[in-house]
């Protein structure tokens, strides 16, 4: 039963993206189309599950003082694997994601889960945690992507939805539309779950030990 909880908490209650506000850069950058959001989400999920698996296996081996560089190298290794795979099998998607494919390495969700969860828990819960968090991230990317694609081009996943006479609002696929849509989605989720989104969470910030502002719950 508790295994189930590790999996489901990432989907909505502790959604890494919309509730914990981690990994905002890819959320804004790749969501001009729902399809790209899906691709990015699944690539991140894969890296997250693998890195959680390896880190929870190695947690006794990795010395505490150099754990962050170790985690980053493990994560970067899986990111390299994913980007080579996508380059050869899904070149269009790799092209669309561009630099952000390599930037999965510095996605704070992955490092955050490694530090918060995988380094303290057993293998199976860590994998489930990674899977749940990854799918939660994927869901939020698809939601934001679908809204922007529908309003910006009149399509969802490439299929025409809006009737022809409706002029698409191009602003939504511009960067400005990304900020706006994400802001609205977070607000709506806050209203639905009756919980104000936390400001900026320090719990999973890799720098929280050196940072002196953790008690104030804000950065710098």
């Amino acid at each position: 039963m508790s295994y189930m909880k590790e999996f489901t908490k990432g989907l909505l209650k502790e959604n890494p993206n919309l509730v914990m506000l981690l990994g905002m850069c890819p959320t804004l950058a790749v969501t001009t189309m729902a399809q790209n959001g899906l691709g990015m989400g699944l690539a991140t999920t894969f890296v997250l599950v693998c890195s959680n698996l390896v880190i929870s296996l190695l947690k006794k081996v990795i010395p505490d003082t150099v754990r962050l560089p170790c985690y980053i190298v493990i994560i970067a290794g899986f990111v390299t694997f994913v980007s080579i795979m996508l380059d050869s099998f899904l070149p269009d998607l790799a092209e669309a994601l561009g630099v952000f494919l390599s930037l999965i390495t510095v996605n704070c969700i992955i490092l955050g889960r490694a530090e918060m969860f995988a380094s303290k828990n057993k293998v199976l819960p860590s994998v489930l945690d990674g899977l749940g968090m990854g799918l939660g991230f994927t869901m939020s990317l698809i939601v934001v992507g679908a809204i922007r694609e529908l309003l910006g081009t009149g399509k969802i996943f490439g299929f025409q939805i809006a009737p022809d006479f409706v002029q698409p609002m191009t602003i939504f696929i511009l960067p400005a539309g990304g900020f706006f849509t994400l802001g609205c989605v977070i607000a709506v989720l806050g209203v639905i779950t009756k919980k104000k989104p936390r400001k900026i969470s320090c719990d999973s910030c890799p720098s929280r030990e050196v940072c002196k502002n953790t008690e104030k719950k804000e950065c710098a």
């Binding site: 400005a176 706006f180 802001g183 977070i186 806050g190 989104p197 400001k199």
Partner: peptide, 16 residues
């Protein structure tokens, strides 16, 4: 409903 992060993101959108 917009307090905190949502209003910050919307302001960022206008700046953008």
């Amino acid at each position: 409903a917009l307090e905190g992060t949502p209003i910050t993101l919307i302001a960022a959108s206008v700046t953008s």
